[in-house]
Amino acid sequence: MAYGYYPGCSAHGTAKEYDISTRKVCVKLGIQLEDVADWNCCGASPAHATSEELSLALPLRNLALAEKQGLNSIMTTCSACYNRLKVAHETVKESPETLDRINDIVGEPYNKTLKVTHFVNFLSEEVGLEKLKEKVVKPLKDVKAACYYGCLLTRPPELVTIDADPENPTIMDGIVEALGAEAPDWSHKTECCGASLALSRTDIVVRLSGEILKAARFADADCIIVACPLCYANLDMRQSQIASRHGVDYSLPILFISELMGIALGVNYDELGIDKHMVSAANMLREKGLM
């Protein structure tokens, strides 16, 4: 059975490697992904900051398309997309009135049949940690990987629920540990990086992301593992600005969870796209004998 896959806009730009590595990893795991054809942007924060209907209608079109395509589920790797798709799905599930109204706006009916997941709960629920462990060929020994969840993967907990404990989620930690790495308990797992203000108030993002890097360093992490292109963009691409603003150069590699998996599952380093990062992970990986 094929799983519906919604890559999201960043997969074609700043987070190309996330998309590339996700596809590679899924092949290794024997999972067949089927892209939602002709998907559109989920609307992210600007949509809900502008019109509630727009913020529901944009994601709902994707859900309706996926359904029409005969898919049972839709998995996305972006936390923001996941949040918008899941919130839209849950909102119309709760309220038939809203469903009717939004269906009219979209022009395609959505019948609420999809299972909406994010890559991380897809991995731990659909694939399972046991199976993942079996597929590991290069255990990530001695790697201390701090899992960063950010806001949109855990909040609001009633709607997005990827983890039973929204304040101290451990679902990604479980995956990272299954790969043989150590996932430290650290303080800033769910602190905000300022995502939606990335361009408009870069100063705020630099401050918040700097605090997250500081906390990860404090936890002695070798790298931060993210499951969202926006978190990635802020934590990786802003590091040089953070260095000049805070006077500390953390040089902390930021890796997508799929990249870390790729290494452990034996995908060729060059095929994962890791060298597209601003902060190179090569040294860290070489040190740990993973490259």
């Binding site: 924060s45 806001c151 909040r155 609001p156 907990p157 905000c192 300022g194 939606s196 203000l197």
Partner: peptide, 9 residues
């Protein structure tokens, strides 16, 4: 507001 939903949660 960064829409982080910390307050709501």
């Amino acid at each position: 507001c960064a829409s982080c939903e910390t307050c709501t949660t």
